[in-house]
Design a protein around this nucleic acid. Structure first.
Lengths: 232, 232
DNA sequence: GAAATGTCAAGAGCGGTGCTCTCGATACTT
DNA sequence: AAGTATCGAGAGCACCGCTCTTGACATTTC
């Protein structure tokens, strides 16, 4: 992990730089042709080196992809946090909509990187622990809105009570959420989070063809309706 | 298109049968290793023939995949229709939940085929017109619930009005839906449809790891809450 | 300062892929 | 029976991920 911290000598410095260049080229390739078309040999060609040399920096193609996946999760967390911060703390609906819009905008600008994390997972692939950090960073943004809503008494009181079995089913998230957040809010949070990425995937993967023709307008509408389920 | 109708001679009959066998083996391969690992050569090996012979039946790997994609859409439509029919017509919530549950059950049993249609689309790939038929068949199931709800006065009256721009944005679907179905119902229908596949994808693609541990219970809960947005 | 060590890019090569073309055998049509 | 269409098989192309070896170079150690 010393490659992350300051490189001590010339060798480590040039190694860190070349690693960065490989990642940059790989990211460009994924952006153009998607993860399926990411070829180590093509990346090597772009860098004017031979494919076998790449294995000094990434043990396998999957490891290179993993680095890009972590990047993508980080980018989502970044745009989410930025959008959240750009709003007045008390404007809960505004914060929610800003975060949704920011993620969608990022996804439209980087469709293949979005697909990298929210599309079909590679069959044998297991996400490394390293992805957890940016994922919880984004979920913290959504939880933050819920917590502030709770503090301001702005949580929607739901018509449907949350059964004990449902409460049990969200125990993993419950453990990470502030304990004074009502169960119903946590449930609604997962629903909102699900719908956010469901809507973006639906649009990006072409399932709204012949259904919606102004995606932005409809997206805003649906995220508002989901928000009404969560906030008041 | 004559291969679909009754084969006239021995040659066409054996061709139709071999085509079916290729599809069956390919389906098995996709079920095991996903679309990424579908190899024409491996399919040919399983059938005891040489890879080039397969090209007599499918012009390319993509065409073979397309056949599987159409199959998968058809399977979703089938289970959806069956679930819908198994309920009393007036039990609108029951019908909605049954359809949702049926699709999820099918997706869990056939994860790779689900991913084939709701996961990352192949970069250069464009879905052929042939997929439209099973897709509209499934959407007809959901629209049917909405239409019956309308007839029984059971559509939810939403707090949020549907703006003119939103009405315009759903024009493509509007054209296919019964004209007496209110705009808000059509909008809510798309939201429900989005959430259904968003929730299944979320679970199947591993995004509910460390979030939900009893997926079935939570799924039922969230689809009920979405239903409350649509029906009353 | 010289020797030992570590790191590097490059090359050859393995088994795999999708796909094309040619060739002979076979089945169907006329 | 002759002609035609279709078939499976085989060779071969360009690509892929990945491994192993080799020789050059930088760094560290003596």
């Amino acid at each position: 992990m010393s490659s992350v911290s300051a490189p001590r000598n010339a060798r480590e410095r040039v190694r860190a730089q070349l690693t960065g260049e490989i990642l940059a080229v790989a990211r460009r390739h994924v952006a153009v042709g998607g993860a399926v078309n990411l070829s180590l040999r093509a990346v090597a060609r772009d860098l004017g080196m031979v494919s076998s040399a790449l294995y000094r920096y990434f043990p396998s193609r999957d490891d290179l992809l993993t680095a890009l996946i972590i990047d993508a999760y980080g980018a989502v967390a970044d745009v989410g946090e930025a959008a959240d911060r750009s709003c007045k703390r008390t404007d809960l609906l505004g914060r929610w909509l800003a975060v949704c819009k920011a993620v969608r905008t990022w996804a439209l600008a980087n469709p293949h990187e979005y697909a990298l994390i929210y599309g079909t997972p590679v069959p044998g692939y297991v996400a490394p622990e390293t992805t957890i950090e940016p994922v919880v960073r984004f979920s913290a943004v959504l939880l933050g809105i819920l917590v502030d809503a709770r503090a301001d008494g702005r949580l929607a009181e739901s018509a449907l009570p949350v059964s004990r079995s449902v409460v049990r089913s969200i125990r993993p998230l419950r453990a990470q959420a502030p304990s004074d957040l009502p169960d119903a809010a946590v449930v609604n949070g997962v629903i909102g989070w699900t719908h956010l990425f469901g809507a973006i995937s639906s649009e990006l993967f072409g399932h709204r063809h012949n259904v919606v023709d102004n995606h932005e307008v409809f997206f805003d509408c649906e995220m508002r309706r989901i928000a009404a389920l969560i906030l008041r």
